[in-house]
Amino acid sequence: MTPRVTATVDLAAIRHNLRVVRQTAPRSKVMAAVKADAYGHGAVAVARALEAEQVDGLAVACMEEALKLREAHLLHTPIALLEGVISIEEAALAVYERLQVVVHDHWQIALLEQLPDSAEVQVWFKLDSGMHRLGFPLSDVPRLVATLQRHPGWKLQGWLTHLSCADELDSPVTAQQIAVYRAALEGVPGPRSIANSAGLLAWPDARVDWVRPGLMLYGASPLPGKTGRELGLVPALTLESRLIAIREFAAGEPIGYGQTWRTPERMPIGVVAVGYADGVHRCLPSGTPLMVGGRRVPLVGRVSMDMVTVDLRPAPQAAVGDPVLLWGDGLPAEEVASYAGTLAYELFCGLTQRVRFRYRNG
């Protein structure tokens, strides 16, 4: 059966991007973010590719994501739960599955304290240096050190924080966050972790004991005005559909729902078998680029559930059945995302189960 929409993930690109991380932060260990199904790329396949490159750790958001990796026999690489545990059952399971628990609040400490004294709990403490989302106040560091002293069975993995404005290169916020985080931990033992992808690329002071790349592993840029290629990264995901119809219309004819776009002259309109039920944002406006036969063509009219329409004047040789590139090499996801007023993260994570995934260079 011929798929309507195909996402091709190049695992060699992901391995290359991990090498770029290591070249950028050669003295840091790497905790690779594979949460949200590896940013929509497929967590199991991506984690296996990263494990083959001996990545130091993997990061997921929650227990369900960690268990998916364990069930796929990813048993050797440490896995951290970035949101920690939310019940005593999850706390016990984290110990059983040898998961690292990121603890961000005192109620989570209370959960872990319900475990037997013999339980070997691997903990990261998350500190709030200015993101103001999750994390202990920096003033709680002495209290957290005392907690560790009360529980000799707990194994400290380190202290992490998260940057709120690392992609804003002119903002003073990141330098302030790094400074207050370092001051709070002065003289306190344990590894440090600060940098996400933007922090890793743009802020050398954030490259400490551990870095936590996400988006850059998938070949997209976390920095405004830059593409992944410009940063030495290789885009890992190519999204393609195909032309299922080509129709000729006279000047002044409306195209699609709401008749929001009209043909300026007699011209061919192509219909592509992809829509918002596949994860293509409905808010993408007319003018958003796609590629047919290596030529850029603009989307025209509204994105519908199963189809989009394109202006085929730039690709006069196009024929029914031709592949259509939504994003990938030659059409960066960062660029497409900008037309929707969003980021490549959201494009990747928005792909639905209707998209057929295939993997290369596994």
Rank of each mutant, 00 (worst) to 15 (best):
A45P: 14
A45E: 15
V46M: 02
V46P: 12
V46F: 12
R48N: 08
R48P: 09
R48W: 06
R48Q: 13
L50D: 04
E51C: 14
A52I: 09
A52K: 12
A52S: 14
E53Y: 09
Q54F: 13
Q54D: 14
Q54N: 15
Q54M: 08
V55S: 03
V55L: 06
G57T: 07
L58D: 02
L58G: 07
A59T: 08
A59G: 11
V60E: 02
V60K: 01
V60T: 04
A61M: 06
C62S: 11
C62E: 10
E64P: 01
E65M: 06
E65Y: 07
E65P: 08
E65C: 07
E65Q: 09
E65D: 03
E65V: 05
A66L: 02
A66F: 10
A66K: 03
L67K: 09
L67H: 05
K68N: 09
K68G: 06
L69C: 08
R70A: 06
E71I: 02
A72T: 09
A72G: 12
A72I: 09
H73V: 00
L74P: 11
L74H: 08
L75K: 12
L75Q: 14
H76S: 15
H76F: 05
T77K: 05
T77H: 09
T77W: 07
T77V: 15
T77M: 05
P78Y: 09
P78C: 07
P78G: 05
I79Q: 02
I79H: 06
I79N: 03
I79V: 15
I79K: 07
A80K: 08
A80W: 11
A80Y: 07
L81T: 03
L81E: 00
L82Y: 08
E83L: 13
E83P: 01
E83C: 06
G84F: 01
G84N: 00
G84H: 00
G84C: 01
I86S: 15
I86A: 15
I86G: 15
I86N: 13
I86P: 00
S87Q: 11
S87I: 10
I88R: 15
I88E: 15
I88L: 14
I88C: 11
I88P: 11
E89A: 13
E89Q: 14
E90L: 05
E90C: 04
A94I: 00
A94W: 01
V95F: 01
Y96Q: 10
Y96S: 10
E97M: 08
E97L: 04
E97W: 12
R98I: 01
R98C: 03
